[in-house]
Write a protein that binds this DNA or RNA. Structure first.
Length: 271
DNA sequence: CATAGCACCTGAGGGC
DNA sequence: TGCCCTCAGGTGCTAT
């Protein structure tokens, strides 16, 4: 479910509640996530102060006062929202991070692809250490994508959603950025020139920033930390719009499966 | 090392 | 209404 804009929306929604609060307790209702939630985790973090809430790619990091972090990943179907401690848990609500303020940050994750982990040094954790650069915040330049793509034969859509190349881009925003940049998502990454990668990097930044400004994309039931859905789905131009007219030329948007995942594009506007 | 395919799960939606 | 099928926003692991 969540890509970078949805994770960032969650982060911004929860930051005011989390920063500076102490963790009263962590309640694990269902440890069966992507990796089992360590049984020792609640005791390890209880009583610690949350210094801040940051994001790396699609990972949320609750940075604690001893320099350790709680790592949360929302997987495909996860959402994290604030509820009052007395709120009875519903189905698929795997855990609560209960704060000393009476608020609980409650994870709902029906498919259980999400994660809750603890690390003494989150940035050095194996899951995070090899992530590519952040697309926002100035690190992304077209030249970076160009250099990284040399001799790569994978489709550029697959190249873009590879978190080891660049962090945070998923299927929705890869498709949208490629449309904006006028690049055929099926084209081999290594056969795209420097100029077009510059255009693509601008498109990635623009699409992600626009989506964040809209509170992310709500396809089914995504909600930010404040429980409100995003609205970027209204602004999607090709994703999920097979058969609808291309906003550029009016020809029907095409859908094709690429590496097992749907790809949407306009065969005239994207080359 | 790069690539392709599989695996992990549940729920929604469409066709009949 | 119910059954069966397909599909879904992620990503690590394995075999080649």
């Amino acid at each position: 479910m969540p890509e970078l804009p949805e994770v960032e929306t969650t982060r911004r929604g929860l930051l005011p509640l989390a920063a500076g609060r102490h963790i009263k307790q962590v309640v694990i209702r269902d440890p069966r996530l992507r990796w089992p939630v360590p049984a020792t985790l609640p005791a390890r973090v209880r009583g610690h102060r949350i210094e801040t809430l940051t994001r790396r790619g699609k990972y949320l990091l609750f940075d604690l006062d001893d320099a350790s972090s709680l790592i949360v990943h929302l997987g495909m179907s996860g959402s994290l929202r604030a509820v009052r401690a007395a709120e009875p848990p519903a189905a698929h609500e795997a855990f609560d991070l209960c704060l000393d303020s009476g608020w609980c940050l409650r994870m709902r994750d029906p498919r259980r692809f999400g994660a809750l982990l603890w690390a003494a040094d989150a940035r050095a954790h194996p899951l995070l250490a090899h992530l590519g650069p952040e697309p926002l915040g100035g690190a992304l330049a077209g030249d970076l994508l160009y250099e990284a793509s040399r001799r790569r034969t994978v489709a550029v859509r697959d190249f873009l959603i590879d978190s080891h190349v660049i962090a945070g881009i998923g299927n929705i925003y890869a498709n949208e950025a490629l449309f904006t940049a006028g690049i055929d998502p099926r084209r081999a990454a290594g056969r795209i020139g420097r100029t077009r990668y510059r255009r693509l990097s601008y498109a990635v930044i623009r699409v992600l920033e626009d989506a964040i400004a809209q509170g992310g994309t709500t396809l089914r039931d995504f909600a930010g930390g404040d429980g409100r859905p995003g609205h970027f789905q209204m602004a999607l131009r090709v994703y999920g719009r097979a058969g609808e007219p291309c906003p550029g030329c009016g020809a029907p948007v095409m859908r094709q499966t690429l590496s097992g995942r749907s790809c949407f594009f306009c065969r005239h506007c994207q080359r």
